[in-house]
Design a protein around this nucleic acid. Sequence first.
DNA 1: TTTGACGTTGACGTTCGCGTAAGTTTGTGA
DNA 2: TCACAAACTTACGCGAACGTCAACGTCAAA
Lengths: 160, 160
Amino acid sequence: MQTVAPDSEFTIRELAQEFDVTPRTLRFYEQKGMITPTRRGAARIYSAADRARIELILRGKRVGFALDEIKEILDLEAINRGGRERLVPAIERFTARINLLEQQREDVERAIAELQAGLAWMRERLEDRTPSDDVRRRARAFEALAQASLDPWSGAPSAG
Amino acid sequence: MQTVAPDSEFTIRELAQEFDVTPRTLRFYEQKGMITPTRRGAARIYSAADRARIELILRGKRVGFALDEIKEILDLEAINRGGRERLVPAIERFTARINLLEQQREDVERAIAELQAGLAWMRERLEDRTPSDDVRRRARAFEALAQASLDPWSGAPSAG
DNA sequence: TTTGACGTTGACGTTCGCGTAAGTTTGTGA
DNA sequence: TCACAAACTTACGCGAACGTCAACGTCAAA
């Protein structure tokens, strides 16, 4: 999220701490060819561009990309250099990816809704009330799952 | 997405095909205690509730939950049976999870935007034009990454 | 100059989420 | 009754994404 001066330099530990990964992780990404920090002696020096790539890698991971896929995205520049033979299939893969992500956004929204329903449910249970109709309606997803535990409420008057 | 009659029954292969997983996957989930189909002889019989749980498991997976985490969510009914000691920490974990998901929705949206930016870029390259200012602005995320390949465009007149 | 923090390169270990035999049983139609 | 598909259990295997030593180098502070 932060933008840093373009001539910034970072050590491996600085970036590892900032992004909450271990140095091992950054070396691993390098070994996969996803980042190519320069060296001062044997030590790695990371540029602002390296840092930006790391950000993108980690965001990619959070949304479920495999490292190899992320690498392909990062290699956009290589794709650009390539001719139509590289460009065209890449465009197709990108498009497919975007569709998947849009599906995934839906999944995330449903997951949020479901967890919130479960949460509301638990909160009412915590207050020892039988769940309100509204909560029960929102917890529909869980009704199917937890019928055994829901059924006692569904027909019976609250049995204190 | 489909709602089925509550007394429906399914074989392992039916559900495997419907959800595009292998039978092995469903047995694996069972082994982890995430579903508990009944048996007819040795053969598994899945109920509508089992089917609903599978749906939830798979959606959970798509948004990046680990199976153990999904199991916890599915165990809401067990949590419900438990007292405050179980309920309270569960509420906290659910809340934390929701926050993560909201963060993730942002990540997904950014990822979509970035891929679309890359896509627009590639499309213009495909037409052999130097990327328009608009596209370049949207591809900011990639500028930092691929400076080497972007710089040639930035100041120079298109050199065919 | 020794200590200690931080860096390096292998190289093997671990967890997760199943895949993949191998061999056995069970149910159904010819 | 035989065959064959489809289910079952057991168990080892695998790729991804690192974790975790081991063994070594380097530099600043004490």
